[in-house]
Nucleic acid binder design. Structure first.
Length: 519
RNA sequence: GGUCCAUUCGUCUAGUGGCUAGGACGUCAGGUUUUCAUCCUGGUAACAGGGGUUCGAUUCCCCUAUGGACUACCA
């Protein structure tokens, strides 16, 4: 009974605790879609639970800093519709939100750990450690910087206090390492994977504080998560192996650890391994949300014509599912349906075809006027323009056959310009000896019609075809050939209605002249 | 090599100690259409393997295989 009560109280506490989650990328380049998904799941979880979504920049590695990356990350989240509650731009009560701005604080905490006896100063050079590592590999042994090894190295555990203190005073380079306990089973819980047990003897003395005066990830994120009162850490699976260290550090500091959820990775569409920039280039789809303009440039979903809603919807379903058959979700619906428990355990292979399908679905839901505005830009680039209302009519005609706004041009080019050539295959199949004569007759019929709307023209022409005993297919295909130049496009009467009577008659003349002579 | 994680149609996935193992994308075949596309209908296709536990395992346990991550003074 007592145990149950404890569990109940514990749950009660966890539930009552203000949900605060963070997305914590390091600004080392453009944000990969795997990173966007991590941000998304954090965001969905926060909003679902009435919590706060924090963006923290983890720039403790000065050697990997990339100009423009921080702005890129913020722009990406913004484009995706992921709203940051606290961050570098937004501010907040738990700042600074850029880790390099608080290096002094991290140092204090590292020293605190030394005072507690759970960390120590180490003076061995990287070169020396590298040599040791190579040596043990050569002799078939697993290199492990553990309690055994540290006995033989130069650090504040093996040196006398006055010795290492004088080293510090002389300004000798040092790092601070965590003193990993010997042979202890660490039990911890992952929200997605359940309980995991790891023995500390397989872990090593990780560096917490580097000789350049910056903390490593291990120190910085734990201190920051604690200071920022993070309730749930939702991050990539690559962190799972170091979770025991993190759990141990919370214990050393005497802090309550947040709850953890490790997300499965995004995998390559074909073959093996995790998704990388190369795959996108190779397979022709973007791996980044936005175009990356620096150095080695990279394509972005935005520039490829994806709607952010479709992109987010696609990403949300890659590794998570609602347990229902619903596939199309607005951001609000995602928030409402989201739960960590329904995130899958195994990696997801990215599927570019399905991404397209999502965009198709979203394009169908867009209003014609919205699409017309976007299409107009593309049209201008092609050297054409038209009245916005006419463009809306046009879009209605081809909307359902395209997945991207930029596809509209390929479906409508012949609306704007008469065919310059005729598809040879189609001509062979559909242009008969009497086609020229029939089209001349058709032209005469069309000349009699003043109202050129499809609704008026269609019945008249159909009646004429029937009256003359022509084959509908034969007439209409030849007609299509001279108007479009190929056997494609929407309903014929919609096309001629849109391009108008004059243009229609002109194209018939041109077609008859060119095709009758050649064939 | 060591540690950890994972494994249902080609892909994303649902699912249960007993089901014809469900859906979506793709693919294939029909249908609609004056063309192409869309659309509609239907088909194809999966529980990695081997041991247990059990009356019965895709489901629970173990082993193997495969894949992945980590193994930096990178995050």
């Amino acid at each position: 009974m007592f145990v149950y009560l404890c569990i109940y109280i514990n749950r009660f506490n966890n539930n009552m605790k203000q949900v605060r989650v963070r997305f914590a990328p390091s600004p080392t380049g453009p944000l990969h879609i795997g990173g966007v998904r991590t941000a998304l799941y954090n965001y969905l979880f926060a909003k679902k639970n009435g919590g706060t979504f924090i963006l923290r920049i983890e720039d403790t590695d000065q050697t990997r800093f990339v100009e423009g990356a921080e702005e890129y990350i913020m722009e990406s989240l913004k484009w995706c519709g992921i709203i940051v509650d606290e961050g570098v731009r937004e501010g907040g009560k738990f700042g600074p939100y850029r880790q390099s701005d608080k290096k002094e604080i991290f140092k204090q905490y590292a020293e605190k750990l030394i005072d507690k006896g759970d960390a120590y100063y180490a003076f061995d050079t990287p070169e020396k450690l590298e040599a040791l590592r190579n040596e043990s590999e050569r002799s078939w042994k697993t290199f492990n910087y553990n309690s055994e090894l540290r006995e033989n190295l130069i650090n504040s555990l093996t040196l006398k206090e006055d010795e290492w203190r004088s080293k510090l005073e002389k300004g000798e380079p040092y790092v601070i390492r965590y003193k990993m306990p010997q042979n202890e089973d660490i039990h911890f819980e992952d929200l997605i994977r359940g309980e995991i047990v790891v023995n500390t003897s397989t872990l090593d003395d990780k560096v917490l504080y580097k000789s350049d005066g910056m903390p490593t990830y291990h120190l910085a994120h734990i201190v920051d998560d604690h200071l920022m009162e993070i309730s749930h850490v939702i991050r990539g699976e690559e962190w799972l192996p170091s979770l025991p260290l993190h759990i141990l550090m919370y214990r050393s500091f005497g802090w309550e650890a947040p709850l953890f959820a490790h997300l499965p990775l995004l995998l390559k569409p074909d073959g093996k391994g995790k998704l990388s920039k190369r795959d996108g280039d190779k397979m022709g789809f973007p791996v980044f949300p936005l175009y990356w303009p620096y150095g080695e440039t990279a394509k972005g979903y935005r520039e490829e014509g994806y709607f952010p809603e479709a992109f987010i919807n696609m990403l949300a379903l890659l590794g998570w599912n609602p347990g229902t058959e619903q596939e199309i979700f607005t951001m609000d619906e995602l928030i409402n349906a989201f739960s960590i428990e329904r995130v899958g355990k195994s990696g997801s292979r990215f599927d570019a075809e399905k991404a397209k399908w999502f965009n198709h679905q979203y394009l169908q839901k867009k209003s014609n006027s919205e699409l017309a505005k976007e299409f107009r830009e593309i049209l201008r680039a092609q050297g054409f323009n038209d009245d916005i209302v006419r463009l809306e009519i046009l879009i209605e005609l081809v909307k359902e056959r395209v997945s991207f706004v930029k596809d509209i041009w390929e479906q409508t080019d012949f609306f704007f310009k008469a065919p310059e050539s005729y598809d040879q295959e189609a001509v062979k199949r559909r242009w008969k000896e009497d086609s020229g004569v029939i089209l001349s007759e058709l032209k005469s019929q069309l000349e009699l019609i003043s109202d050129f709307s499809a609704a008026t023209v269609e019945p008249v022409i159909k009646a004429w075809i029937e009256e003359r005993g022509y084959n509908t297919g034969a007439v209409m295909n030849a007609f299509r050939l001279v108007i479009v130049g190929a056997l494609r496009g929407p309903h014929m009467f919609d096309i001629i209605s849109w391009i108008g009577k004059n243009e229609t008659l002109k194209r018939i003349d041109t077609g008859i002249n060119l095709l009758s002579v050649e064939n």
